[in-house]
Amino acid sequence: MERPALPLPALTPVELTGVHRLFGPVPALAGLDLRIEAATLTLVTGPNGAGKSTLLRLLAGLLRPTSGTIRYAGRPLERPDAAAGRAYLGHHTQLYGDLTLRENLALAADLRRLPRDSLDPWLERFDLRAVADRPALACSRGQAQRAALARTFLGDPSLVLLDEPTAGLDAGGDRILRETLAASLQRGAAVVVATHDPTPLAHLAARTVRLSAGRLVAGEPAGGAP
């Protein structure tokens, strides 16, 4: 599906320097240094509690570091409208259950000032046309996850952050996600995916970093960069 490229705020490279994040006395991230380049997919792996989700929420701006800095294209991201190019999907679909899938996507599009006619291509790409006017509550977990992914990619963000994005997806959903990620990378987006199972996306990844107890314990090129 060819879509015209939209002007994206320059958010890459993203640089984390000495990032600590505490929850109460418990460190979730302990002095993380990481650089995320444009047009690359970075897989973040590690056991439960390693800090993967915290890292993604920090990059999304939903959390603030306790200390350390995160810079996007060399500067902190303070102004909300500068965040237009950043998209995040966590463990939850972030959908309003009583709104239809189309209404959920329309709200996101309106808030990002995207034209309404930008929705249909994404509903089509994620094979949601048949259920687009169904309330999210009445959709299966997989359909809701597809809708959440479609919303994430609305507007062609330049920084895509996905936490276990294949959860709930069937084989068809997996394939659509891989194709969409490949297209985003080709467009120049930076993608960070936190996952327990790096296998399905390994062929797209330029790099895999492994976290343990909030620290980077390994970071190596994965090969097969797009």
Binding site: A60, G61, L62, P80, D81, A82, A83, A84, R86, A87, Y88, G90, H92, T93, Q94, L95, Y96, G97, D98, L107, A108, L111, R112, R151
Partner: peptide
């Protein structure tokens, strides 16, 4: 509660609009 369910508030917070 609507914002809490399925963390819908995150989607609002991620939008490029001031809190």
């Amino acid at each position: 509660a609507r914002e809490r369910e399925d963390r819908a508030l995150d989607a609002l917070r991620l939008a490029p609009v001031p809190p």
